[in-house]
Each structure stands twice: as C-alpha cells, then as structure tokens.
Amino acid sequence: MTSDLFFQFLFAGITYGIMYGIVAIGFNIIYNTTGIINFAQGEFVMLGGMLSISLLTVLPLPLAIAGAVLITMLIGALIEIVFIRWLESPSVLRLIIITIGISILIRELALHIWGESVRSLPYFYGNEITSIELGGVRISPQVLWVLGVCSIVVAALSVFFKVTPLGREMRACSANRKAAILCGINTRNMVTFSFMLSAGIGALAGCVMSPITYTQYDSGTALAIKGFTVAILGGLGNSIGAVAAGLLLGCLEAFSVSVVPLAFQDAISIAILLVILFVKPHGIFGSSEAARLKEF
C-alpha cells in the first residue's frame, strides 16, 4: 500500500468514524441521565437530514439546517414528555422496548411523508467533483465540513458539561439521581433536556453527512446500530471514548476494504469489535467499577 493510498483510506475512515462517534455521543447523553439506550437515536439523524432537505425548498441552507435541528429537538422533547416522563420508576428493559417502538413509528411516518426515494442536501461548498488536495490526498470539501462540525460539537459539549450550570446539573443527575433530587435539581426536566440535546446533535450530524451518505427513510437504523456498537465499545456514557471508538470502527471499515470484499466489510469490522469486547468487557475506556453501579 502506497502512503498516498494509506492516507486516502485513513481520511475515509476518519470521516465515517467521526459520524459514528457523534451518533454514539447522542446515545451517551440519554444514557447518562436515564440509564437507557434510546434506540430512536438513528431516527433523529434521519429526521435532521429529511427535514433540512424539505426546508431547503423555502429557506436558504444555513436556516434550513437550523430549522431542522430545532424541529428535531422539539420532537425529541415531545417524545420524552408523551412516552417517558410520566412513567413511575420504569424498568430499563421497558424503556428500551418503548424506544424501539418509537423508532419503528418515526420510520414509518417518514416513509409515509417522504416516500422511499433517496434524497440528499447539496454540497455545502462546491459539488460532487470538487476536491481539495492535502499533501497528495484528494478529499471532498464536505469531508472537511463533517470533520469541522463534529469536532466543534464534541468540544462544545465537553465545555457545556464542565462549565455551564445546566451541564453540571445534568452530570449530577447522571452521577446519582437521588442525590441530585436532594440538591434541588429537577431531574425530570434534565431527562427531557437530554432528549432535546441528543436529538439536536443527531439532527445536526444528519444534516452535515447527508451530502455524503444520502438520506432515506430507513437510513437511521444502520447508523443507530453502528452508533450503539461504538458507544458500547467506548464504554457507555464516555463521550471521548465514543469518539475514539468511532474512529477505530471507521478506520477498520476503511482499511478492511483493501483486504476483503466490500460485502464482508461489516462482518469483519464487527467481528473485530466483538473480540475487543470479549477482552475488555466494559469497553475500551469503560471501567468495571462504574459499570457495576449501573442497573443495566
């Protein structure tokens, strides 16, 4: 493998990897406040892409994306308020099955609204064949957009959780829910807010990756599966771990193409992830002590 080809694969891997990482962060935000995996996370990504494509017919691109993110956040909040907020001490499995039901519902709604056709946003800069040369590697400017937006999201999130009062309250809620209630934090609002936040992040990711990966009513499922895998592998609840694991999966996929046929790509990358999970049962960056404290 020449070094040019190596870097080409590496860039492809990083692009997909950071997308998986962003979806996994969406999983983590909700997991941290509720202890459940929200299986409708992939649908938020799909909704972001679809809504922005529809809004683009009446609005300019930046406003369309902002509108799509806002609407998806509202949908996320609505889902939490209607289906989850009023349940009294629900079991984890019950919540998971509810989110599976919600994801099926959103997907079917999207099918009836947008049909089966494959859509995409236009490239933010240039078009399909525009490329930028970076030290012998040719990449599309959209890849830079994805990398830029995702890195900003990751950085902004870590600042948000460290510095702002709201972020601190959410962290308190994830560390110990009872103690958070005793400190006067409205944990129910925190859960609603975590749904809004992860819906918004998912939608934003859906918008920036739409020109590269395209958007279809069921494109959320595959992404959710990858995102879930990555979230687990990075250690549930660990956002930096999620990004690292996402990059690992992206690179595994990109480089596996040079060894095995494309059709076996998923099988190989997931088999490797499984082996890692067997060696490190709580994810690469997860700790066994923290995992023991969680109910599920």
Partner: peptide
C-alpha cells in the same frame, strides 16, 4: 451484562 450483552448478540446477528 445488560447493554453490553445486547450489543454483542446484535453484532453476532449482523455478522
């Protein structure tokens, strides 16, 4: 356990 077991079996299904 839990989510980790779910992911591992899911991975097997995908393979």
């Amino acid at each position: 356990k839990g989510h980790y077991l779910a992911m591992a079996t899911l991975g097997f299904g995908i393979i």
